[in-house]
């Protein structure tokens, strides 16, 4: 069994009351969760806020049950899915019937084994954005900065407060992680 040691350590620090661990937990997971919920709530921002807040609140109340057997983000998305379903029940409306690839168990399992997971639909843009959201911390950001904002390695380094070599290395790891996750996800969707 893969144990997500970094995630487990982060949760351990949170259980101990470490404020910096809480900040890291929130900064890493909030935006991906919000976008995850937004896509499943027909773009309703109010609902997404409510759902993610409820999901995170439930999760922080159950941190002790997190064993690191799945990536922390995958674990959090479980709460999010539950809250999304509850929101649709409360609103007495039917959720849209779009297929979300990371709701498929086998895709989840493949991606989780890579310490990342995700992909939303056959739509490439969504797929890419979803994969970026599920990459380890900063990976998605540096890839966007590099390819969309066209920042240089030095500018990325400055933004992250690290050296140019470290930034270059981070970019390489991010690219590899994206390549691996995107391929696995696309295969999962198409299989």
């Amino acid at each position: 069994m893969i144990v997500h040691a970094e995630d487990r350590a982060l949760v351990g620090r949170m259980i101990a009351g470490d404020e910096r661990a809480f900040d890291e937990f929130f900064e890493t997971n909030f935006a991906p969760m919000f976008r995850f919920a937004l896509r499943r709530l027909d773009g309703n921002e109010d609902a997404a806020e409510e759902v993610v807040q409820a999901a995170l609140s439930s999760a922080v109340a159950k941190l002790k049950t997190y064993r690191g057997e799945a990536a922390l983000m995958t674990w959090l998305f479980t709460f999010c899915r539950h809250e999304i379903a509850a929101w649709w029940r409360r609103s007495k409306r039917e959720p849209s019937t779009a297929l979300f690839a990371d709701d498929l168990t086998h895709v989840e399992a493949v991606l989780d084994s890579l310490a990342m997971s995700g992909a939303e639909s056959r739509d490439t843009s969504r797929l890419v954005q979803s994969v970026l959201d599920r990459l380890p911390r900063h990976y998605g950001d540096v890839l966007e900065w590099k390819y969309i904002e066209a920042l240089s390695v030095n500018e990325i380094a400055a933004r992250l407060g690290i050296g140019a070599k470290a930034a270059e290395s981070l970019l390489t790891r991010a690219r590899n992680a994206f390549r691996e996750a995107f391929t696995a996800t696309a295969e999962g969707v198409l299989s």
Binding site: E45, R126, I148
Partner: peptide
């Protein structure tokens, strides 16, 4: 990889007030 990411465009930004509100509430919890 570059082409895919450019094609997808930036991920939607999260409104800062929403993030701040949720963070404060989850932090309290």
């Amino acid at each position: 990889v570059e082409r895919l990411i450019k094609l997808a465009g930036p991920r939607p930004a999260i409104p800062a007030d929403v993030a701040a509100r949720v963070k404060a509430n989850v932090h309290n919890q």
